[in-house]
Amino acid sequence: MGYAIEARCLTKKFGDLTAVDSVSLSVREGEIFGLLGPNGAGKTTLISMLVTMRKPTSGSATVAGFDVVKNPGDVRRSIGIVFQDPSLDEELTASENLELHAAMYGIPGQQREARIKEVAKMVELSGRLSDQVKTFSGGMRRRLEIARGLMHFPKVLFLDEPTLGLDPQTRAHIWDYVRKLREKNGITVVLTTHYLDEADLVCDRIAIIDQGKIVAQGKPAELKGKLSADRVTIHCRFPARLKRAVWGQDGILKADVAGGRLELRVSDAGRKMPAIVSIANKAKVAIRSLEIRKASLDDVFLHYTGRSMRDEPASAKDSLRIRRRAWGRGR
């Protein structure tokens, strides 16, 4: 199977700031590939180079077999883009938006009408084609943007934060469409998100990007597997005594006492728990409660970047974006 995207040492500098720092990655055809990282990590800049909106400072990349610097026109014809910010004309109807897009992407006149109906059906907007976009909810707008991105039969679909500012139910819906797309059309999807749980659910492979660099790459399960540790929290009377008792046991990688609880990092925690409980009984430590958390992408992120993604405050621009979307939905 070929590669839909190959980037080699792709770098983008803005003055002194290196937004994307020598990124190399390959995305296979038909794959759903996630770019994961906090705000300002360089996800959008990386995407904007791949979609030929910005020229790389150095390095090279091919998308759908075309060089992003030498053949930007061919790249643009082979890709669909859903931007982070809304980009529909609200005064136009859904079908007028799609029609304009079809015309700009050179879809012949006699095919336009049929294709509009087709993509509208894909995102379940068939009944709303002749309504003005300003009457649409946030989720409907996103779906329409996805439909628009698909109009010209792209080989690769780029989705930049497609679920930002949407409610959880709508987000789940959007991901459903993305998965179906891949199943039905075999299209390659590259998406960015900072909702780790969503990436875990949707992506075949992910790359974690932080401060312009890719710090980890692989299947979500592999990345989590590499951590080989689940978190176990034990609330008990004498956490320090329990720590001494379990420390050194097979599979216990880390043990910390914090307040009235013991925090453990345990590989394959589910199997180790009975042993830990019986050790606690022998040591006469009464366990009040016990909690196992399987390694999540949050942990992976923390592991590779030393920071928790949830600590990142939303930037002013992001909160503006979210507010604007919310405002758009209300009307």
């Binding site: 979609v51 030929t52 909106m53 026109g73 643009r76 014809r77 883009i81 931007f83 910010d85 809304p86 980009s87 529909l88 004309d89 609200e90 897009h101 700009m104 992407y105 050179g106 628009r148």
Partner: peptide, 16 residues
């Protein structure tokens, strides 16, 4: 207005 409401991007990345 197109820039403020985002539509401009759609025209700018089109292969025209």
């Amino acid at each position: 207005m197109d820039r403020q409401f985002g539509f401009l991007k759609e025209t700018l990345v089109a292969p025209v």
